[in-house]
Design a protein around this nucleic acid. Structure first.
Lengths: 350, 350
DNA sequence: GAGTGTCGCTGAAGCGCTTCAGAACGTCCA
DNA sequence: TGGACGTTCTGAAGCGCTTCAGCGACACTC
């Protein structure tokens, strides 16, 4: 069953009796031919069932592909359930989408980031990396291909554009807020330090050897202000995991009076855990988050948290990506600001 | 500033002193040359900084691109906050990722589905469409390009592979459950019938003219069992919108004793609305959802809902996509099963 | 009426790769 | 010894497009 061969530029050119260049121009540079001829070309294309220049061939000839690659540190499912990531991605998408670009998603497996083979085959001419572990093999694969890259929340890589957040500073802000309220006994809840599925209390060695920069920085920010405190690591930024972890932390004696969480998502789990134990936030336990996702404001009680401009981060990343796409230089890192948003989940500790 | 031209196959071939075909074989058909030579080629490539065959050129030559396109009915932001979509996408991704394929996301604008231009330029050789409106222009664009397509939750398109769910049957199951519990006064909460941002009560005409098949079917399922009932349409499947809508419905007199929601996400908003009014689920109001996303089980109270196997749906879509990629025929539609999961959000109505 | 533009179109090179039909050179068996 | 076969490598065609120099032809200008 040989289906009719797909029409190409040549097919159309032959049908109209013009050169191939002219048909190409009809699609790409309407000013290069008379509009009458252009109409004839387009009409012929329509009757022949020609849907326009083949994207792959066009990419080869023009040497760019109108696609932005996105390197994810986790599986797609985890990514999609992470509101912070979703918002960043949305900011990014809203920027690049307006320019007829597609997003090529390269999800990470368990090993922290996409497989290098996936990167090697992906048709994108700029790549955005987001919260990968420092040693993700995909980063090397991107470098090897010589693709321009913008890294968000990521280790400093030479030659890349960057969007940075002062995670440590933000975390310190949160810790100092609690200190100012008179808290002295803390528990810390965090998402992974390494992509190995670990759950439980974190040793100093593990903390120091963490490969997720964001995690390390937030924890460092917390601990540098409050001194030593038990840190519970969840294997993902999921509230159910945090609920379990928070119960562990609250079960220690003396019981912490404040829980510092590496993300809002974890803080939501902590709020639930406090309720589970018949305690009240913030009377018995203060809880503080990080990110300020939309749900933070609507939590019960509304969550005190460190705000980072997530949409903006994504948008900035998108703009940088577009700039690199145009052959621009990476330029200086863009730093976005963080600030503390005081709401109802933290209170004075008598 | 002319950066050194990127090495190509020829560069490597020249360096090693072999033909271009041999270098190509070193990457693609190791059995076609001695392993000693292969080693030399690969070593030369490494020192030259050659990262392997260019994906675009390779795609042009082989006429396939190892990418699966995904047509989204909504903007990326909405997509990422939709747990059901996320789970489907994850199932899909886990299937195609194992085969070194990437996912090319084509987000929809406000108009219901991606712009045709985006589709025309996307480098994918199979496309998965998910919950687009019946009349999405992107569908026509895919057809025009002659790309194979698998449609999920979608109108029947000739020549496409399909994954289907009995939405109407599932909804009827839910409605009959409530009827069996003695309920007689209902309210229905739904996500959009058309991609026009409408919020508020739904007229019969609007219902009949809805362009989202899933919405239409679920509502039809509900209403065919319970008879007439007020239907509130939210402009997205977001719990905050549902919370508002549910408050409206519960404000009517006589007050409904049961709320049927087109998705779990909407049901979560409904639960909140009931609480807002100082009422209790399920004593005062029963609430039922659709999808059975993971959070349904952990809701307060745990949500009675119609379960559809979301991950499985995505996986099936992925398998179909891979089959089409291999030149396979679409075959018969795959139907996945739905069933009622009774939990704590529904109860007898005295 | 020679010089200068502009407009509309074409020819041909080239983007970086795959692939297929051989060529060259053993090896093996009869 | 010679033919059949394998193995290893190569030459060249071709994937479908963009783009750039250039060519007529026609319209202006002084």
């Amino acid at each position: 069953m040989d289906r009719p061969r797909k029409p190409t530029l040549d097919t159309v050119a032959a049908a109209v009796g013009v050169s191939r260049a002219t048909v190409s121009n009809a699609y790409n540079r309407p000013d290069q031919l008379s509009s009458a001829l252009r109409e004839r070309v387009l009409a012929a294309a329509a009757t022949l069932g020609y849907a326009g220049p083949d994207p792959v061939a066009r990419s080869l000839a023009t040497r760019h592909s109108a696609a932005v690659g996105f390197l994810l540190g986790q599986q797609l499912s985890a990514s999609f359930s992470d509101p912070a990531l979703s918002i960043v991605l949305d900011g990014l998408a809203s920027t690049v989408d307006g320019h007829d670009h597609c997003l090529v998603l390269m999800p990470g497996g368990d090993r922290g980031g996409p497989r290098p083979e996936t990167v090697a085959r992906a048709q994108a001419d700029v790549v955005v990396a987001y919260s990968l572990p420092d040693d993700a093999p995909a980063l090397e694969a991107v470098r090897a291909r010589g693709l321009p890259m913008v890294v968000v929340d990521q280790p400093v890589l030479p030659g890349t554009a960057r969007v940075e957040v002062d995670d440590a500073g933000g975390a310190r802000l949160a810790a100092e807020h609690l200190l100012g309220l008179g808290h002295t006994r803390f528990g810390v809840l965090t998402f992974p330090l390494r992509p190995d599925g670990h759950t439980g209390l974190v040793s100093a060695a593990r903390l120091a050897g963490g490969t997720f920069r964001v995690t390390r920085d937030r924890l460092t920010g917390y601990l540098s202000a409050i001194g030593d405190a038990p840190v519970w690591e969840c294997s993902g930024s999921r509230r159910e995991l945090a609920r379990t972890g928070a119960r562990e932390l609250l079960g220690r004696s003396p019981r912490p009076t404040a829980l510092l969480c590496a993300s809002d998502e974890l803080a939501f789990g902590a709020l639930q855990a406090v309720r589970d134990l018949g305690l009240t936030v913030p009377r018995d336990v203060s809880v503080i988050g990080f990110d300020d996702v939309p749900a933070a404001e609507h939590a019960d009680p509304p969550l005190t948290t460190v705000r980072q401009p997530l949409t903006d981060k994504g948008r900035r990343a998108g703009e940088l990506a577009l700039r690199l796409l145009d052959g621009g230089r990476p330029g200086d890192p863009i730093r976005v600001a963080v600030n503390l948003v005081e709401r109802g989940s933290t209170a004075l500790q008598e």
